[in-house]
Write a protein that binds this DNA or RNA. Structure first.
Length: 281
DNA sequence: ATGCCGACAGGATGTCGA
């Protein structure tokens, strides 16, 4: 079974590119993030025409995750357990039957977490009303990121106990290590590279997950994201933040894991590229 | 020091991303 994850940066803006990639790569499962669509505006028909079933957890304008599958999509769960009032659509999970067994798959869009500090930017004139607004808008993004990762860890722990093939795949918004970054100094003050962010990811991995790509190679210089700005793609200034975390039962069936780098050079590309994994299931 | 680019909502330009 060929499974993939791709932060498409708007499924509607990216529809032609996603359709083209599905025709070429023919994955059995594609987890998408940042679809930036509600369930109503999600272009399900286009994917159904290519032979895919769709499970969507959408949101207007921001975030949004989905799972496409050539096989049936069963036991769908939308959202992580957590406090009421978290309206951000960042998690969808389902059970997919393979030829020889089931695999549980989650499409994950972890929070970015920037800016790091409440007053990292301008605070206007400093009058109390503006200060209060700035504080309200900018406080807590990094805290939300770390809290969300804790919620993911708690949920992942329960899933691991099922002892079944499991793939938690998506945009983790964490640069796991310096070798996953073109220039660590550039990202040193970014939420994606903070020690707390890396610790939050490690804490999940230490439950018993393996970074599928890192099971294949220890080499530096493999990225999944290149900023649209400042010629980052042309200069290969990228970072690897799109990960496939596998349970032991999934890892033992893995035969390949690759990053489809050329997609970044395509027509009207996303700033992320697909990460693909082959499982003997 | 900040913007660079791109998508969105809405109908100008601010918000957000990483």
């Amino acid at each position: 079974m060929k499974i993939a994850t791709w932060n498409v940066n708007s499924v509607r803006a990216r529809l032609a590119a996603v359709e083209a990639w599905l025709r070429e790569a023919r994955p059995d499962v594609l987890c998408m993030q940042e679809i930036k669509s509600t369930d109503d505006t999600f272009p399900a028909q286009a994917f159904e025409d290519l032979g895919y079933n769709c499970a969507v957890h959408g949101q207007k304008t921001y975030n949004g995750v989905a799972i496409l599958s050539k096989r049936p999509i069963e036991d769908i769960t939308r959202g992580l357990p957590g406090p009421d009032g978290d309206e951000q659509a960042r998690y969808i999970e389902a059970l997919i039957p393979g030829d020889t067994g089931m695999v549980r798959i989650a499409s994950i869009y972890a929070p970015n977490g920037n800016p790091l500090e409440a007053f990292s930017g301008k605070v206007g004139t400093g009058f109390p009303p503006e200060t209060a607004t700035k504080q309200k808008n900018e406080t807590g993004k990094f805290a939300y990121k770390l809290d969300w990762m804790k919620r993911l860890k708690a949920h992942a722990e329960g899933l691991l106990a099922l002892k079944e093939p499991l793939a938690l795949m998506g945009d983790y918004n964490v640069i796991p290590a310096d070798i996953d970054c073109h220039d660590p100094a550039v990202w040193a003050n970014d939420a994606l590279a903070q020690p707390q962010s890396r610790a939050a990811l490690r804490a999940i991995e230490h439950l018993g997950f393996t970074d599928a790509f890192r099971a294949q190679t220890a080499a530096a210089g493999h990225y999944s994201f290149w900023d649209y700005q400042a010629g980052a793609w042309q200069k290969n200034r990228g970072i690897r933040i799109d990960l496939i975390l596998l349970s032991p039962q999934a890892l033992d069936r893995m035969t390949a894991c690759t990053i489809d780098k050329p997609v970044r050079g395509g027509e009207k590309p996303s700033d992320h590229v697909p990460v693909v994994c082959e499982l003997n299931i």
